[in-house]
Design a protein around this nucleic acid. Structure first.
Ligand SMILES: [Mn+2]
Ligand SMILES: [Mn+2]
Ligand SMILES: [Mn+2]
Ligand SMILES: [Mn+2]
Lengths: 146, 146
DNA sequence: CATATAACTTAGCCTATGCTAAACTTTGGA
DNA sequence: TCCAAAGTTTAGCATAGGCTAAGTTATATG
């Protein structure tokens, strides 16, 4: 068959995209947690398991287990039955995440979607936006949107 | 503390975003598989485990196991040691996915990012774009870009 | 100041998604 | 034709991220 076989990138290059997605996803939960913990500390002075569980829409026990991993990763500290704190590294990750998240959300708004949709879609999209794309979104915002 | 406490959406509303992300993620693998199977069938006449494993960058056994789930979900059919086929539902999902994926990728290009970055970022972003955002991207493409 | 309630933790379970190693089929060449 | 290589499947393992139910600690209030 002498079909044009317009072939895309090599298998090697192709797999790079999926590897990036898998890497994004394995960093995602940690990013959302530290961002939320930072928000809770700023908003109400402290972050507690229950608030995180509420906001994420998962069971309390799930939060407890995840926090253990974040402790191992040196992103948070916690004494039993006490509030949760961020390490320096945790704060850095939270702030990077907030910046990126806010930019993506503002970008979607500037693109013309509703407040609700921007809020919801940005929660997933934020984790897959490379720095190059983030810059492009920033430029768009500078031209259009606020 | 009489801080302004500019509070965002209710916890209930907030959790909706994370629930959407979790739902997106649980649909994601199936979407990527059927899209890739459709591509392989179109490009080379048939889809085999090995090709999928190569392109995804995972082990063969992982693909075999995932295909079992997709069979249960009635998205693909397969006889032992034979090529993989899509059901009618599988083709529909593949085509919807291709449309969305292509639009997101073209949108990123129109936004000004490189071919490589558009290809890579769109692989993750496509799964978190609501129909409203997709429409907004379509409008942007109509104005700018090709 | 005692105790009921709220918050937190533990235990035990599940599914999805990954891996390696070993076994089994298919198939193209010699 | 037959057999080695390529492709496929199975078995067994691991981790992440969910859940419920039951136990433990802290705390607010009567
Ligand atoms: Mn997020
Ligand atoms: Mn994602
Ligand atoms: Mn896709
Ligand atoms: Mn994808």
């Amino acid at each position: 068959m002498a079909l044009a076989t317009k072939k895309g990138p090599s298998a090697k290059l192709r797999s790079a995209a999926f590897k990036r997605v898998r890497a994004d996803h394995s960093a995602e939960l940690a990013g959302d947690y530290v961002e939320m913990i930072a928000d809770l500390i700023d908003e109400r002075g402290e972050a507690r398991c229950t608030d995180i569980a509420m906001r994420l829409g998962v069971a309390n026990a799930t939060v407890v287990k995840t926090l253990r991993r974040l402790q191992t990763a040196e992103l948070v500290t916690q004494e039993p039955y006490r509030a949760i704190f961020l390490t320096a590294e945790g704060w850095k990750m939270a702030e990077d995440g907030r910046r990126k998240h806010a930019l993506v959300e503002k970008f979607l708004l500037a693109l013309g979607v509703s407040t609700e949709t921007a809020r919801i879609d940005s929660e997933g999209i934020e984790h897959h936006v490379s720095s190059e794309t983030l810059r492009a979104m920033g430029k768009f915002l500078a031209r259009h949107g606020s």
